[in-house]
Design a binder for these strands. Structure first.
Lengths: 261, 261
DNA sequence: TCAATGCGTATGTCCGGACAATCGAACTAC
DNA sequence: GTAGTTCGATTGTCCGGACATACGCATTGA
């Protein structure tokens, strides 16, 4: 029963690669981090080819004048990123690429900018409203208490791409309309010292209502991609609740998943 | 400019919680893993309430008769899962809940089963076909080379939920139709020793074609949720390419994201 | 009253070593 | 020739300690 899988992983193991590595002990940057960055750069740059062995940890540590735990910490961080695979009794090898980056807690603004498009934002609504039951539950505030509401239209190349409706608890952020149009909501949060921690997302689809269709320049009933998200900071507070709709012809969610080891 | 965010994180720090913890040194289960599981269970169970401090590592290590690195390894694994947050000079505290589980590389079958629904599968097609350019590129095989094709209909409560079309490289798996109907594709892969490593996914939406609509008992032109996925094992081989369509009224993607620290 | 300073505390980083578990390949025996 | 065994190589786990760094708080000073 094991024969199928056992037979195929051919011993196509590239020889161990010798690499120029060095660390700066006078730098405030942790040694393991310096090492992991150099290794990551070498992988990205192609100096470490997929499948190649990294050489055993003990010798690597000796070569760099580091201890084995430090080297292990560097390697482990890259394993967690999905760039390396460890095999007991064999060694550590570079994963056969295709790995770009795992799914991050990214904003649409960052996504678009990374794709080379300069996103434009049009703020439609920027006001304070009493929280509905749905919003209150998501943000963990009292019903009918005041929350900020922001509605935005995100454009690329002059075409509407997404309609974003967000609710933000009061007192967190100075929601300046000009700033909202110049950057993304997440950046504004990070800029005032909020440490984003996690988010709960739901991605679905539905037919566009008349109002939605008009906003996105689509016909009524057209399929829309929807996303709802509650974002939490590291203290556990909900810092944002959003309901977004995307034009599926212009945008889709693309990401990399890693199995949890 | 920092005032907004700085002022809000009130010192609502719950007192340190004392907990019954113990490890079994005769067990083959690693000590750090025993500890992390107990801590996770305590959080899940409510013994460790959100916001409560975990007590310093040194004392915890002493209390358990473990070394500090071992305790740190246990704690770190829970930090990586998003359950705990470390603060230098403060301590380690339980994240303010809402955290269920991060996005995993899960199959629809597992998702449904976890939701308490007993999924049913109907295999529509189970054959071998020459790879189209699209399939060949995704799986990294030669065009027109033979690949397995499996088309399945996934049902819950007798209603169709999703239509799954998958391509699998030859020689990997024994694609028994009965087995495909009894379990999921990922389980079959794991059962023959394939170690799943990562997947590249794209989630979008579109209007149903006539054929798609009929298969899913939807009207033509109805919005569908779509997902394409290429899955890789730890040797970097592509082991599966799939094109799935879901009924958005019956299924949506729901998951938790963590920021990469 | 408010800002600057110092101190205790907890995590962050790093070291050097030890033994166990596992994989692959060479070797041996049948 | 084939199956089983042994053995070297490499990572996995764990220990005990040391010093650095950052945060919160109390104290001090203007």
């Amino acid at each position: 029963m094991w024969s199928y899988a056992r037979r195929v992983p051919k011993p196509e193991v590239d020889p161990t690669v010798s690499l120029e590595l060095s660390v700066d002990r006078s730098s405030p940057v942790p040694l393991y981090f310096q090492l992991s960055q150099q290794l990551e750069a070498a992988i990205e740059h192609g100096a470490l080819t997929p499948g190649s062995l990294l050489g055993n940890e003990i010798e690597l540590a000796a070569r760099l004048g580091l201890s084995r735990p430090t080297v292990r910490q560097a390697i482990q961080s890259l394993v967690d990123k999905g760039l390396l695979v460890r095999r007991r009794g064999v060694g550590t090898q570079v994963v056969h690429s295709q790995v770009k980056r795992p799914l991050e807690l990214s904003s649409l603004y960052d996504d678009l900018e990374a794709a080379g498009q300069r996103p434009a934002t049009k703020v439609l609504v920027n006001t304070v409203v009493p929280a509905t039951a749905e919003v209150a539950a998501a943000l963990g505030v009292a019903e009918d208490s005041e929350v900020h509401q922001v509605e935005r239209l995100r454009l690329a190349h002059g075409e509407p791409m997404a309609y974003l409706c967000n609710f933000i608890p009061p007192g967190l952020l100075d929601l300046d309309t000009a700033q909202l149009e110049a950057t993304g909501l997440y950046r504004m949060m990070r800029a005032v010292g909020i440490t984003l921690h996690s988010a709960r997302q739901t991605i679905g689809a539905r037919a566009a209502t008349l109002a939605e269709a008009e906003r996105l320049a689509e016909p009524e009933g057209a399929p829309l991609l929807t996303m709802q998200r509650v974002t939490f900071d590291d203290t556990g507070r909900a810092v944002e609740y959003g309901t977004h709709t995307y034009r599926p012809s212009r945008y889709s969610f693309e990401f990399q998943l890693l199995v949890r080891g």
